[in-house]
């Protein structure tokens, strides 16, 4: 039987951070990693467990770009559009990604496999144009290369 929401994971995270509200950001980072977003009921659960108003947690969760209220894909793509990447043609990379997976920045594919965000700078300007998928950095990209990477990830899922 599938478990939609297992608070045991949240409890593990809370325990790891000593149920201390001062560790809220660390707790949220772990929650984000676990669920690929901050689910509403988890925010409420944390409110109860940490004795914090949910409005406060919501405020922190919406402030930092690391957190998302909507689920991120299994592969969370951040395509860089900082100055260096922009000059090196990141726009064409973005078009290639949009064409391959059919979503725009800020969106997630219906099967939750990919999500796409456009970011200001990844700090990898020497590798421009660059993108990051989950924690892996890809540099010196071309549209063809991007399409190949995404195709590979899709196949990995099917296999």
């Amino acid at each position: 039987m599938p478990i939609t929401r297992n608070f045991s994971k949240v409890e593990e995270i809370l325990k790891k951070h000593a149920y201390d509200k001062k560790n809220l950001i660390k707790i949220l980072l772990d929650v984000q990693k676990e669920y690929r977003h901050l689910p509403k009921d988890v925010i409420n659960y944390l409110g109860v467990a940490l004795d914090l108003p949910p409005a406060k947690i919501y405020g922190v969760g919406t402030f930092y770009a690391q957190f998302s209220l909507k689920p991120k894909g299994q592969y969370a793509i951040s395509i860089c559009d900082g100055t260096a990447c922009h000059m090196q043609g990141s726009t064409s990379l973005l078009q290639a990604i949009e064409k391959e997976i059919g979503i725009k920045p800020g969106e997630v594919t219906p099967d939750l496999l990919f999500s796409l965000d456009q970011v200001g700078c990844l700090g990898a300007c020497a590798l421009a144009p660059a993108m990051v998928i989950n924690e892996e950095v890809y540099g010196n990209l071309t549209p063809e290369e991007v399409t190949r990477i995404l195709k590979n990830l899709k196949e990995r899922k099917e296999a």
């Binding site: 108003p53 409005a55 919501y58 919406t62």
Partner: peptide
């Protein structure tokens, strides 16, 4: 938050 200790509203977004 400080005077009433309720915290029903807070800043969100950036």
């Amino acid at each position: 938050e400080e005077i009433q200790s309720v915290g029903a509203i807070d800043f969100a977004y950036r």
